[in-house]
């Protein structure tokens, strides 16, 4: 067997598996989306139909808020952890990163424990003010859940990027008279730009498509994944749910592709 043929044989199973269980289903999804009563215009429904549009806006705003908050939090913590050595640092890093692969459902449950009807915050506020604060099932609970989900990953990316920073640049800026704040603003943050774009895009795309957390919180908040789920299972509206999920997929993919072209391929796999 020639080497060429061997390489094709190596690739063949992947091509078959991908074609059968990804490309073909995706094509089917595309066809079903266009096969409903609305025809191809189903793909525009996500924008033209007021109810869907409101949901889309909701989802985008929530995802954007999650992304910005995560970036701010993770940058402060990541810079701090990478720049200082102190006892307990390793434990702190471990605490901040181990929730990395918790599924969305579990995160939802953790938010319930924190801010749900029997939650810690409720218990504390009840004891202090006499009024029980419960927000797990509101959009703020979902926001908190997404935050929980993205912080570990973004912290890791920021820390890796900070480690690669040339400390000489900062020293040069200081030798030129820049204050610590000016150094952060003019040297450190710009150098971290690609890492921000990369990890921000992943956080955004993940928040757009996350389903488990919203499902567990069982909120009535309209976010796109929940809408798709209810359209499919409750309303059995296959065409619309297909069109909506294509729309969701395209948005998530476009964000990641854009970020990748902006940050020069630094966007790692979303986990």
């Amino acid at each position: 067997m020639s080497h060429r043929n061997f390489i094709w044989i190596c690739l063949l199973p992947l091509v078959v598996v991908t074609a059968a269980f990804f490309l073909l289903p995706m094509a089917q999804l595309l066809a079903v989306g266009a096969g409903g009563s609305r025809g191809v215009s189903a793909y525009l429904a996500i924008i033209t139909e007021p109810r869907y549009r409101a949901t889309l806006i909701n989802t985008v705003v929530l995802a954007a808020a999650t992304t910005i908050a995560t970036l701010v939090i993770a940058t402060i913590a990541g810079l701090f952890l990478q720049r200082h050595r102190f006892p307990g640092r390793a434990v702190l890093i471990a605490m901040l990163t181990f929730p990395l692969a918790f599924p969305g459902v579990v995160v939802g449950f953790l938010i319930i424990l924190l801010a749900g009807r029997q939650g810690l915050i409720g218990a504390i506020t009840a004891a202090v003010t006499g009024e029980k604060v419960v927000f797990a099932y509101s959009i703020f609970g979902l926001f908190l859940g997404y935050l929980y989900f993205s912080i570990p990953r973004v912290i890791l990316t920021v820390m890796a990027a900070v480690q690669k920073l040339d400390i000489g640049l900062e020293e040069a800026a200081r030798s030129l008279g820049a204050s610590p704040w000016a150094v952060q603003r003019d040297v450190v943050l710009p150098a971290l730009g690609p890492a921000f774009v990369a990890s921000g895009a992943i956080a955004f795309a993940t928040a757009m498509g996350a389903f488990g957390t919203a499902f567990t919180l069982a909120t009535n908040i309209d976010v796109l994944p929940m809408l798709i789920y209810t359209e499919f299972t409750l309303a059995a509206n296959f065409a619309i749910s297909a069109a909506l999920s294509i729309g969701l997929g395209v948005i998530a993919w476009a964000i990641l592709a854009l970020a990748r072209s902006m940050s020069g391929g630094a966007v790692a796999a979303a986990g």
């Binding site: 795309a205 498509g209 389903f211 798709i228 499919f232 999920s245 997929g249 993919w253």
Partner: peptide, 9 residues
């Protein structure tokens, strides 16, 4: 990039 929900559908 594509949400799991879409792939599942």
């Amino acid at each position: 990039a594509i949400p799991g929900l879409a792939i599942a559908l």
